[in-house]
Computed example of a mutant assay.
Amino acid sequence: MVLTDTHTHQYYETIAHKRAAFMERCLSNNINRLFLPNVDIASVSLMFDLVRAYPEQCFAMLGLHPCSVKENWQQELNSIRDAHQQNKIYAIGEIGIDLYWDKTFLKEQIDAFRQQINWAKSLKLPIVIHCRDAFNEVYEVLQQEQDENLRGIFHCFTGTVEQAHKITGLGFYLGIGGVVTYKNSGLDKVVAEIDLKHIVLETDSPYLTPVPFRGKPNESSYLIYIAQKVAELHQTTVETVASITTENSIKVFGI
């Protein structure tokens, strides 16, 4: 059995022995593939450090997170792009629109999102989308940019069945994480109605920790609890969920 964490910031742990212990716990739970998105220029080196330490398990993305889009976003994005020249990446992400914390830079967020979508298309890479309180805004951009090169993952999906179908209708996968294990989230009912062929798994470590560790820092090894919950919702085995969602991740990332 091979499980794939399609979205983890596990690189924030920089102490070598703790990082090694994290990875050991991942492997013991059959989580053998970790895809890492940076969020800004400062996190690029942390991410690539982990990739270099575990090249068989860790795979990099590059992008400018919408919450990192400020007045100087173009300069920061240019610096992030420069990092691509020396390093292999498998997606552009995480990118998107976030209106939960601050609406000040909505126009800039949309411009940065669109620019990075076109960067991904030029590289023939998938995108990994961050969307918070901005479904309509994100979906509008995706509709405008839709073509045969636009593909990827809608990270941390927590929306409705209708929204899920809109996303999968564009050819995107739904990233399902720890929220599906939360008793009153309602995401469990949505995931139960979505075919596994549209789903990939993620932790978003160190955030959104699944039950039974909710309230503590998340880590990629906890992906097993998300897989177990999805298996329960679909009345199937964890092995089946692992097989289908890992195959979906291979289709997205090409590895």
Results as ranks from 00 to 15, higher is better:
residue 225 Y to G: 03
residue 119 W to F: 13
residue 180 V to C: 02
residue 242 A to L: 07
residue 8 T to M: 01
residue 140 E to C: 04
residue 83 A to Q: 09
residue 216 K to M: 14
residue 8 T to Y: 02
residue 52 R to F: 03
residue 22 F to Y: 12
residue 222 Y to S: 08
residue 190 V to Y: 09
residue 236 T to P: 09
residue 49 D to F: 02
residue 44 V to Q: 06
residue 91 A to D: 00
residue 187 L to P: 14
residue 91 A to I: 03
residue 142 L to P: 02
residue 251 K to Q: 01
residue 158 T to A: 11
residue 112 A to R: 08
residue 97 I to S: 08
residue 153 I to D: 07
residue 175 G to T: 10
residue 105 F to C: 03
residue 208 L to Y: 08
residue 132 R to I: 12
residue 93 G to H: 05
residue 154 F to I: 12
residue 208 L to Q: 06
residue 201 L to M: 05
residue 27 L to V: 09
residue 35 F to L: 09
residue 240 T to C: 03
residue 250 I to D: 00
residue 108 E to R: 05
residue 25 R to C: 01
residue 67 C to R: 07
residue 78 N to F: 12
residue 86 Q to M: 10
residue 93 G to A: 04
residue 169 G to R: 13
residue 83 A to S: 14
residue 103 K to R: 12
residue 138 V to Y: 02
residue 88 K to C: 09
residue 185 S to Y: 10
residue 157 F to P: 03
residue 221 S to L: 00
residue 54 Y to I: 11
residue 164 A to L: 10
residue 146 Q to V: 05
residue 58 C to W: 12
residue 236 T to F: 11
residue 249 S to T: 05
residue 74 Q to G: 01
residue 243 S to D: 14
residue 70 K to G: 06
residue 173 Y to W: 15
residue 173 Y to V: 15
residue 235 Q to Y: 09
residue 74 Q to W: 00
residue 228 Q to E: 13
residue 105 F to Q: 08
residue 248 N to W: 10
residue 26 C to D: 09
residue 140 E to W: 00
residue 149 N to S: 11
residue 28 S to H: 04
residue 143 Q to Y: 04
residue 117 I to D: 02
residue 58 C to A: 15
residue 18 K to Y: 13
residue 25 R to P: 01
residue 6 T to Q: 04
residue 215 G to Q: 01
residue 194 I to D: 07
residue 214 R to W: 05
residue 189 K to H: 14
residue 40 D to E: 08
residue 149 N to M: 08
residue 188 D to K: 15
residue 220 S to Q: 05
residue 37 P to N: 06
residue 29 N to T: 03
residue 97 I to W: 09
residue 172 F to G: 11
residue 184 N to C: 09
residue 136 N to A: 05
residue 221 S to V: 00
residue 57 Q to P: 03
residue 190 V to E: 07
residue 104 T to P: 10
residue 135 F to I: 11
residue 89 I to H: 04
residue 132 R to E: 09
residue 117 I to E: 01
residue 156 C to G: 11
residue 240 T to Q: 10
residue 72 N to K: 04
residue 122 S to W: 03
residue 130 H to C: 08
residue 10 Q to W: 06
residue 163 Q to T: 15
residue 123 L to P: 00
residue 205 S to G: 05
residue 211 V to L: 07
residue 96 G to P: 05
residue 252 V to Y: 00
residue 248 N to K: 07
residue 3 L to N: 02
residue 114 R to V: 12
residue 233 L to I: 09
residue 55 P to A: 06
residue 5 D to I: 11
residue 64 L to C: 14
residue 95 I to S: 01
residue 86 Q to F: 14
residue 10 Q to A: 13
residue 190 V to F: 11
residue 65 H to D: 06
residue 154 F to K: 11
residue 246 T to I: 09
residue 157 F to Y: 09
residue 62 L to W: 04
residue 20 A to Y: 02
residue 48 F to L: 12
residue 142 L to I: 04
residue 9 H to W: 02
residue 189 K to G: 13
residue 170 L to H: 15
residue 32 N to D: 15
residue 100 Y to N: 01
residue 115 Q to P: 01
residue 76 E to G: 00
residue 41 I to W: 10
residue 153 I to K: 07
residue 222 Y to Q: 12
residue 6 T to M: 03
residue 117 I to N: 01
residue 179 V to W: 13
residue 116 Q to G: 07
residue 241 V to P: 07
residue 46 L to R: 11
residue 86 Q to R: 13
residue 187 L to Q: 14
residue 211 V to A: 03
residue 231 A to T: 12
residue 216 K to H: 15
residue 33 R to N: 12
residue 62 L to V: 05
residue 108 E to T: 04
residue 176 I to W: 05
residue 70 K to R: 13
